[in-house]
Simulated assay, not measured.
Amino acid sequence: MREIPLYNSFVKIESITKGMSSDKKYYIETVDGQHMLLRIADASEYAQKRTEFENMKHLASLGVPMPSPIDFGTCDNGKSVYTLISWIDGVEVETLLPSLTLKEQYIFGVESGQILQKIHSVPLTTICDNWAERYFSIIDPRLEAFRSEGIHFEGDTIILYYLESNRDLLCNRPQCHHHGDYHMGNMIQSDTNRLSIIDWHTVDFEGYGDPWYEFNRIGIKFGRFASGQIDGYFNHDVPEKFWKLFAYYLAASAITSIVWAKYFAPERIQDILKMNTDILHWFDDMKNPIPTWYLRDFS
């Protein structure tokens, strides 16, 4: 860490343990009063971290509300790679929403949807592989794992049938850069009342893919917020095909999480099983692609 050029200005270094990333994370304060986040990873991740840093710089330059990229490089005699970004003081939207009115929750959702749309407006600079092939190369083995060793529940065959019979929905989908983990816990209402997006270091499907795939982490716990996010993203004109793909990605994510939780997070099994049964309810046993919690033209 001492090799980081700004190290001599650090007056406070606090380790951060929250989150599932393998990165070492630190809250930093500098002699001139700046607050920063320092992430340190193994040098084998240099190329990936470099790409992340450059993408953050580009998005920040477009006005996406997010931490400002400050510095990037190697340390620990070349054994580690570091990323230094600004720290955003504020409250997680997930913590804030319960204290808001339903209208305020919806307004927050609209703003988050507009930000996501701006993130997705950045075109990929390289030719991408076919999205359907990339997606199914990951999801199909997970679905097979559920069939062979998952915890089965009433209605699981309905979800599996929907996923199998609607695979063509993923054909010829456009692709763009992803945030990677777009949910309420990664949204901060800053001390200056600005909604900002944090944690740009989750790499799912190598950081790019179908833009609508990112809705699989939407904050359904707050239906008004989720409705607002969808409306904000589409400027209140949601295409029919979105709903079918939204149901697809949500259901696939939920049912394939069961085996993961069985082995790695058994304490979450019941919550994930409930999510699957909720999905069956929201989409009327997968017969109606518009979920029951979606509110049209809420204001």
Rank of each mutant, 00 (worst) to 15 (best):
residue 272 I to T: 06
residue 81 V to F: 03
residue 184 M to T: 15
residue 77 N to L: 06
residue 174 P to Q: 12
residue 209 G to K: 08
residue 211 P to H: 11
residue 166 N to H: 15
residue 252 A to N: 14
residue 34 Q to D: 14
residue 267 E to I: 00
residue 25 K to S: 01
residue 204 D to Q: 10
residue 294 Y to P: 07
residue 10 F to G: 04
residue 167 R to S: 12
residue 132 A to D: 14
residue 104 E to M: 07
residue 119 I to E: 06
residue 60 A to V: 03
residue 210 D to A: 05
residue 165 S to D: 13
residue 291 P to E: 00
residue 66 M to W: 03
residue 280 L to V: 03
residue 209 G to D: 04
residue 3 E to N: 01
residue 257 S to H: 05
residue 97 L to E: 14
residue 265 A to P: 08
residue 191 D to F: 07
residue 101 T to E: 06
residue 207 G to N: 04
residue 153 F to V: 01
residue 182 Y to W: 11
residue 78 G to L: 08
residue 172 N to H: 12
residue 227 S to E: 11
residue 278 D to F: 04
residue 130 N to W: 07
residue 127 I to R: 13
residue 163 L to Q: 10
residue 29 E to Y: 00
residue 64 V to G: 12
residue 71 D to I: 01
residue 157 T to R: 10
residue 255 I to L: 08
residue 84 L to E: 11
residue 268 R to L: 02
residue 223 G to H: 06
residue 129 D to I: 06
residue 286 M to L: 13
residue 19 G to Q: 03
residue 128 C to R: 14
residue 151 I to E: 09
residue 190 S to C: 07
residue 235 N to L: 11
residue 295 L to E: 13
residue 284 D to C: 11
residue 286 M to A: 11
residue 211 P to Q: 09
residue 140 D to T: 12
residue 5 P to F: 03
residue 244 K to P: 02
residue 157 T to A: 10
residue 226 A to W: 10
residue 45 E to A: 03
residue 176 C to M: 08
residue 104 E to Q: 15
residue 112 S to H: 07
residue 217 R to M: 06
residue 246 F to Y: 12
residue 71 D to G: 02
residue 42 D to I: 04
residue 8 N to I: 00
residue 211 P to C: 08
residue 234 F to C: 08
residue 49 K to F: 09
residue 134 R to V: 05
residue 83 T to C: 01
residue 262 K to G: 01
residue 129 D to F: 05
residue 45 E to C: 00
residue 101 T to I: 05
residue 213 Y to W: 13
residue 217 R to T: 06
residue 25 K to T: 00
residue 132 A to Q: 15
residue 199 D to A: 06
residue 282 W to E: 13
residue 258 I to E: 02
residue 292 T to V: 03
residue 246 F to D: 08
residue 194 R to K: 12
residue 54 E to M: 05
